[in-house]
Structure formats: structure tokens, C-alpha cells
Amino acid sequence: MPTPILVVDDSSIARKMLIKALPPTWDVQITQACNGNEAVAAYRSGKADVMFLDLTMPDMDGYAVLETLQKEGLNSFVVVVTADVQTLARERVRALGAAAFVKKPVDPASIEAVLREYGIKL
């Protein structure tokens, strides 16, 4: 059974790059969202066992998505994917429930390493 994953970024190019960086052997069903509101809706409809989440987006940013998921009893594995690699950003997303943090631009090795580290079946 495919793992439902959600790729959230306001840039369609960034979403495509992340999808291409996913392990080719990983059986997934991919849903995409271009803002936080779409991400929360997809999460609520069960399309995000694993979520790759950008922080900087219009309407609802990644921090607000994490806050919403935390209030709703987060049961999704969230990997923050962002160019903002400041220590404060890392600490804030961890406090909000994100499991991992990956720097943009993503590369396949970093994505696979994070997934394996947390025991995600590939």
C-alpha cells in the first residue's frame, strides 16, 4: 500500500525538484499543496503520513501549518524543507513538532538519509 505523502511549497519548481529527489523505490501516493491552507486541508483528509513542508509561503506559512497540526494532535511525520537554515528556525520547527529539517535545494541523498534515520520504510 503506497504511503500518502504531501509536498507543500508555493513554488511549483521546488515541489517538482523535491518529488524528483524522493527515493525511486519508495511506494508513495503524492499530493501537492501550494500554500498552508491547502496543506492543512490535505492533512485533514488523510493525505499526509509524511509531509515535506516549506516555511515561507503566502496565506499560511509553514510555522502556522505546524502550529495547526500540533493543536490537532499531529500524527504526520513532517520534514521541513527550506532555505532558512538559521538555528532559531530549526529550534522553532522542532518545538512545533517537525521531525527533521532539510536544506534547499534538496538532494536525493539528504532526503533518503532523513527517511532512513527515522525508520520510514522505503
Rank of each mutant, 00 (worst) to 15 (best):
T3V: 06
I5V: 15
V7T: 11
V8M: 03
I13P: 06
K16S: 07
K16R: 14
K16Q: 05
K16T: 15
K20I: 00
A21V: 13
A21G: 09
P23C: 05
T25M: 07
W26K: 08
V28M: 12
Q29W: 11
I30N: 07
T31E: 05
A33W: 12
C34K: 12
N35M: 12
N35E: 12
E38W: 12
A41M: 11
A41T: 04
A42H: 06
R44H: 05
S45T: 05
G46N: 03
K47H: 15
D49G: 08
D54Q: 03
L55D: 04
L55A: 09
T56S: 15
T56C: 14
M60V: 03
G62C: 03
Y63G: 12
A64V: 09
L66G: 09
E72H: 01
G73Y: 05
G73A: 08
S76Y: 00
V80T: 04
V81L: 04
Q86N: 11
A89T: 07
A89N: 11
R90V: 12
R92S: 07
A95F: 04
A95Y: 06
L96N: 10
G97Q: 09
A98Q: 00
A99V: 13
F101A: 14
V102T: 10
V102E: 07
V102G: 02
V102F: 06
K104M: 06
K104R: 08
P105I: 01
D107P: 03
A113I: 00
V114A: 05
G119Y: 08
G119D: 00
I120W: 02
L122A: 12
L122I: 15
